[in-house]
């Protein structure tokens, strides 16, 4: 029957998903059964008792207590079954085991940021080990969001000034789509993220060296990717227009005046410092509003950005 389930539901990423699906399919059969019963009765009555003349003989019964009790009590009992079944799985889904890997999740218009216990952060991509419970401690910086992982059948709203939690444990390595399901404005449809479930050895490797698919990527290409995905593009243009921060076009290797009057050469060291301690040297004419990327970028990623900036002539 799994083809029948797959017709309705996305692939199962966790054992909780399997439990939810069992109830879902139970209700599907319940629905089909009751619908066929009611539609069948209507169809039969319409055909059988179609009006033939204005003086058809009709039934005289106006009520029947036994019948009415039957169709009140049977649905009620079925509803109670569904209630307890849903209740049981809900409790397992909301109470995380004590040994879970805790990850802080921040939602803001319109990106998801994950912070690992060691302080490492990542945007829009969460890498987790397979076979280990993962607990998300979530909060929002602005409006309501909701973190929905269809394959895990879980979802929870993300609120400002308050923490909400959810957890999962996936044993199947792979990539899982995350979508925002609480309306949050213009970028709501695009507020996606990815959860990558890895085998434990891959996960250790990831903690050391970053995502495997990026490791072999040429530096400049990786830089271009980071430019978009890490939010640089919001303030720094690569077509020469002035944004919240200086454009990257034609900047590398030139001298610039700082707000404190010094002249600085735009070289590798300047860029590295500006990424890690943005307030140290701010180019004249701009405000020091850039957040630090300390802990957000690995060494190779900084090199990649420098390489990318060099290419912007």
């Amino acid at each position: 029957m799994s083809w029948f389930r797959d017709f309705f539901l996305p692939m199962q990423g966790t054992s909780h998903a399997a439990a939810v699906d069992n109830l879902f399919m139970f209700i599907v059969f319940l629905n089909i059964g009751f619908f066929l019963l009611i539609a069948g009765l209507i169809g039969y009555f319409v055909l059988r008792y179609r009006r033939k003349s204005a003086h058809d003989r009709v039934g005289k019964v106006t009520h029947h207590l036994g019948l009415e009790l039957t169709w009140s009590i049977i649905p009620l009992l079925l509803c109670l079954v569904v209630f307890f079944w849903g209740f049981k799985d809900y409790m397992t889904a909301t109470v995380a085991p004590g040994d879970a890997l805790e990850i802080n999740l921040t939602g803001e218009k319109w990106i998801w940021t994950f912070e690992y216990p060691d302080g490492m952060r990542s945007l829009g991509e969460l890498y987790v080990p397979a076979g280990k419970p993962v607990k998300l401690i979530m909060q929002s910086k602005d409006v309501l969001h909701s973190f929905f992982i269809p394959n895990f059948r879980i979802k929870m709203d993300v609120l400002p000034n308050r923490y909400t939690e959810q957890w999962f444990q996936s044993n199947i390595p792979g990539e899982y789509q995350v979508q925002c399901t609480e309306y949050c404005g213009k970028g709501h449809s695009g507020m996606n993220a990815k959860i990558v479930v890895m085998s434990p050895t891959q996960y250790e490797d990831y903690l050391q060296n970053g995502p495997p698919n990026l490791r072999s990527m040429p530096l400049a290409e990786l830089g271009a990717l980071l430019y978009e995905s890490r939010g640089c593009a919001t303030c720094h243009s690569i077509n020469g227009t002035k944004g919240q921060g200086p454009t990257w076009t034609g900047s590398f290797g030139n001298m610039r005046k700082m707000t404190d009057g010094r002249e600085m050469m735009m070289d590798e060291n300047y860029i590295r410092t500006s990424i890690l301690q943005p307030q140290a040297m701010v180019v004249s004419g701009y405000e020091g509003i850039m957040p630090t990327y300390q802990g957000l970028l690995r060494d190779r990623e900084i090199l990649a950005l420098i390489e990318f900036i060099k290419k912007q002539k």
Binding site: N31, F83, F87, K88, R153
Partner: peptide
């Protein structure tokens, strides 16, 4: 009838978590 029956999915807590919104 379809509208009412599909409401059963949404009353069930665990299934509603998946279907909500």
């Amino acid at each position: 009838t379809i509208g009412g029956l599909t409401g059963i999915f949404l009353g069930a807590l665990s299934v509603d978590i998946h279907l909500h919104d």
